[in-house]
Design a protein around this nucleic acid. Structure first.
Lengths: 194, 194
DNA sequence: CCCATCTTGGACTGATCAGTTCAAGACGTG
DNA sequence: CACGTCTTGAACTGATCAGTCCAAGATGGG
């Protein structure tokens, strides 16, 4: 069983990402990763590096995947910023509703669980975590909002977006999650109408 | 050194709570708890039970302590619901700003980290977690808000309140945290003015 | 058909974990 | 002052952890 790589790197990375996402960094052992990816422990080390390195790759994968979706959702901000923010939230609501993917949010649970993470990983999480705000601020300004309001709304929307993962994991229903974003979307619509 | 208990139970429980709060359940070992409380491992077992039982006591302690503060903050809801919600958020903002206490929120990080927690503990966390919403709903209705709006705002405010812990842990500044709640408070004020 | 190369599986290491056990000894009671 | 009671500290157990190592064997080039 050798000579040529016997697994697909993308499939393995996805499996590892979902495993970290479902169980968190601390509660994911290398045996879990081995089981999830179908790779042997030594194959993981030789192909993907140690636990920290693999986790970093999964984090980047996660940030890129959903970052792209957020960008796509916000792309209509100039024409209809309210619809853009609604679409932004829908990315997260859809992810939470997707049974093929774990509850919660890999970034949020990682930032909440920092101590086991090595400082460099924790720093990287925070960095990726902060990407949403400038994205939103730019979109809101493109939609005609003042600089100050755009800044405040951007951080508010990013925060509410994160809260969805927490509330969803805590047992809130899809209706309750929609109510959470509804208040924000209404407030945004009113702020823009003025 | 025996014959009489040589430690103060409240002090020890506070120390254990802060240790769990700072490091989370998974990353808190019994040695950490022993060091934090000043109690020997066997004293912890005999006086406070095993790790799960101690964690439950700390959770209840946390929920009660901040639950009481939230209740006090909302007590003026009938006269001035906006001020009540502002005071509600101030409890969390003050907690985050308090250097004597860890960042984040014990409940939120526990609900995000569930897998290591035994199912019964996870259930208990969710239960305690859900206490804020009815508290807020009652307060908002007392302040003159319609049933439907009160329900939506209650879950929104509870979510934003939780997001503060996540965003604070992710490195947001106090100003940014104030902006997050500011949008919600403004929206609430407008909703009540109508 | 053979050999060098590289993946793979499983055994191994040392550290750390939660939880148990027990002798030592300090206290309060009589 | 003596004895029983209860806390305490430290050693111990078995399990699991991340990470390493190496022999077995499959592959592809010559």
């Amino acid at each position: 069983m050798a000579g040529k790589k016997q697994f697909d790197m993308d499939t393995a990375l996805d499996a590892a990402m979902i495993q970290f996402w479902r169980s968190g960094y601390a509660d994911t052992s290398l045996n879990d990763l081995s089981r999830a990816t179908g790779l042997n422990r030594s194959s993981i080390y030789s192909s993907l590096g140690d636990k920290d390195a693999l986790f970093l790759r999964c984090l980047d994968r996660y940030a890129t995947r959903y970052g792209d979706k957020f960008d796509a959702a916000l792309s209509c901000a100039a024409e209809d910023p309210v619809a853009a923010v609604r679409a932004f939230f829908d990315v997260t609501l859809g992810r939470i509703a997707d049974p093929a993917v774990p509850d919660g949010c890999l970034m949020a649970q990682s930032v909440m669980a920092s101590p086991t993470l090595s400082p460099s990983v924790a720093e990287h999480v925070k960095e990726l975590f902060g990407l949403q705000r400038p994205r939103l601020r730019t979109a809101l300004k493109a939609g005609g909002m003042s600089d100050e309001n755009a800044e405040d709304f951007a951080v508010h929307v990013a925060a509410v977006n994160q809260s969805l993962a927490v509330m969803g994991r805590a047992g809130s229903s899809p209706e309750q999650l929609r109510a959470i974003v509804g208040v924000t979307v209404d407030a945004l619509a009113r702020a823009l109408r003025r």
